[in-house]
Design a protein around this nucleic acid. Structure first.
Lengths: 171, 171
DNA sequence: CAGTCCATGTAAGAAGTTACATGATTCT
DNA sequence: AGAATCATGTAACTTCTTACATGGACTG
């Protein structure tokens, strides 16, 4: 999956490992993110496979390794993209806590849930900011990039609603 | 997190590794699951730490290793449980696909999304079955176990709604 | 001139899965 | 009798993160 998302970004333009990390942080971090410790080795692997090629640049005294996607890389990426989407269960570990909250005094449970709702609101705000940014930048709501952000809003809103319902029910 | 959920289940009663796996499969699999390859080593680790103790039983010719939680285990578990809930971003890799769907012919994108919506419906049905089962077993809607199932329903419903909206928008 | 950002990379370790190995029991 | 389920466990592997190591450029 990491290699796929990196190839996807390289479909736009040539980029460095650092650039790729920034794109993830800005655009996909709420549903996918990676550290440099996995990005750089992945670039090396993909170069070995022939999916990308490297071009070393020096601007002034700024050194950068810019990678671009090859034809082999494009066809691999497109081949992956057209396959059916696989739904992989992801660990929502916060639910593990709440699952066992019968072992907690009800006041403590409520307090923790309220705190959690606030954290969720913060994440929601982040996604909302991404939404506004995207609207400004592309001046359209008709693209898939925008749609994934909307999904994030649906997602966070549904958990926030659930969490608040639960808190109300406890009080 | 794996150790915590196992301790949580052992708060109910003594269980074998096999039992723990079944509980996860039946009750928490949509938000947390583990394989035997991680459960059995975890049991060993937790026994070493003194959080659980093992009792080997033979019923007829059926051999089982039943683990129960110790006082140390209980206090560790409760200590973890009362801490603030941490929200960890989880990888929703299906969104990585959709994020790049501008590279796909619109008909193909729509077809894949429709297929994906069906997969989501199946997962939704599973959670709904868990919900009905829990209602029957406990005859109440007032517990946290039940609430986590409701969260699953909220969650899947929100993605299904989003997915269907997106499909409609494309057509 | 200290702190932050830009930029690349490695090594160690965490946390898990898959596949294998074993063997009894229960169901059809 | 064969298949499925019960039951435990290990070894190899995957995949990722964290922490470290390095060094130049920009900013206040």
């Amino acid at each position: 999956m990491l290699e796929n998302i990196m190839l996807g970004f390289l479909m736009q333009k040539e980029m460095s490992g650092y650039d790729l990390k920034q794109w993830m942080a800005e655009c996909t971090s709420y549903f996918f993110d990676a550290s440099f410790g996995s990005i750089y080795p992945a670039l090396k692997r993909m170069e070995d496979k022939g999916y990308i090629v490297c071009r070393e640049t020096v601007e002034g005294s700024k050194f950068k390794k810019l990678y671009s996607i090859t034809e082999a890389g494009k066809s691999y990426f497109l081949g992956w993209l057209e396959k059916p989407i696989t739904f992989t269960k992801s660990n929502h570990s916060y639910l593990v806590n709440i699952y066992f909250y019968n072992h907690l005094p009800i006041e403590k449970a409520t307090a923790n849930l309220k705190q959690f709702a606030e954290v969720l609101e913060q994440h929601m705000n982040e996604v909302n900011m991404q939404k506004e940014q995207t609207e400004k930048t592309y001046n359209t709501k008709n693209n898939f990039r925008y749609s994934t952000i909307i999904c994030g809003i649906y997602y966070f809103q549904s958990i926030i609603d659930w969490c608040n319902d639960l808190i109300k029910h406890l009080e």
